[in-house]
Simulated assay, not measured.
Amino acid sequence: MPGNFVTEASVYGTILVSGMIVVAGGYGATSWQTFLGVIGTVIVFWAAHVYAGAVVEYGVNTAEDVTMATAVRRSLRHSLGFLTSAVPPSIVLLLGALRAVPDTVAVWTALWLGVFILGVLGYSAFALRGSPWPIRILGSLGTAALGVAMILLKVIVH
């Protein structure tokens, strides 16, 4: 996984999607309703993240002469993981919405996919730092634990 996808935006995007799935499940939403809610929420939060990143980059980066356009481009690049981390669970939810798989299978698969994505992000972050494989595994498990916490929350809410 390239380093530009291993960002706090990727982790945050995955947790946001998982949280949306948990909340939608608490209301008994269908896969279609959950899919629409996730997509809408991700787009709004991503836009806010890009905006905040551009404002900070423009205002704080005084070491170089940064234009607002450059700040927006950098923020877009940095926030790409926010969107890409939401794609796999959203595809699974869409499969449920299209009745290719039952709603419950789509929802649970999307949640477990979030756990997997978090694990890959954790592993990749430690790999990029050159950590030995036991530390990479621990990093993966620690990051994936956030996704498991979302699943436990769904069980409690449901």
Score class of each variant (00 low, 15 high):
Met1Arg: 10
Pro2Ser: 13
Glu8His: 15
Thr14Leu: 04
Ile15Gly: 05
Ile15His: 01
Leu16Asp: 06
Ser18Glu: 05
Ser18Leu: 06
Gly19Arg: 01
Val22Leu: 05
Gly25Asp: 03
Gly26Tyr: 00
Tyr27Trp: 02
Tyr27Val: 06
Ser31Tyr: 04
Trp32Cys: 12
Phe35Met: 03
Leu36Met: 10
Leu36His: 07
Gly37Arg: 00
Val38Ile: 03
Val38Leu: 06
Ile43Arg: 11
Val44Gln: 01
Ala47Gly: 09
Ala47Trp: 09
Ala48Tyr: 02
Ala48Val: 04
Gly53Asn: 01
Val56Tyr: 06
Val56Phe: 05
Glu57Thr: 10
Gly59Ile: 02
Val60Ala: 14
Ala63Asp: 13
Ala63Arg: 12
Glu64Thr: 11
Asp65Leu: 07
Asp65Lys: 12
Val66Met: 08
Met68Thr: 05
Val72Lys: 14
Arg74Phe: 01
Arg77Pro: 01
His78Thr: 15
His78Val: 03
Pro88Gln: 08
Val92Thr: 03
Leu93Asn: 03
Leu93Glu: 00
Leu94Tyr: 02
Pro102Leu: 02
Trp108Ala: 11
Leu111Ala: 02
Leu111Cys: 01
Trp112Gly: 04
Gly114Asn: 00
Gly114Met: 02
Val115His: 04
Gly119Lys: 07
Gly119Gln: 06
Leu121His: 09
Gly122Cys: 14
Phe126Ile: 01
Ala127Asn: 13
Ala127Lys: 13
Gly130Leu: 05
Ser131Gln: 13
Pro132Gly: 04
Trp133Cys: 11
Arg136His: 10
Gly139Tyr: 07
Leu141Asn: 11
Ala145Leu: 09
Ala145Lys: 03
Gly147Ala: 02
Met150Phe: 07
Met150Pro: 03
Ile151Trp: 09
Leu153His: 00
Leu153Asn: 06
Val157Asn: 14
His158Glu: 15
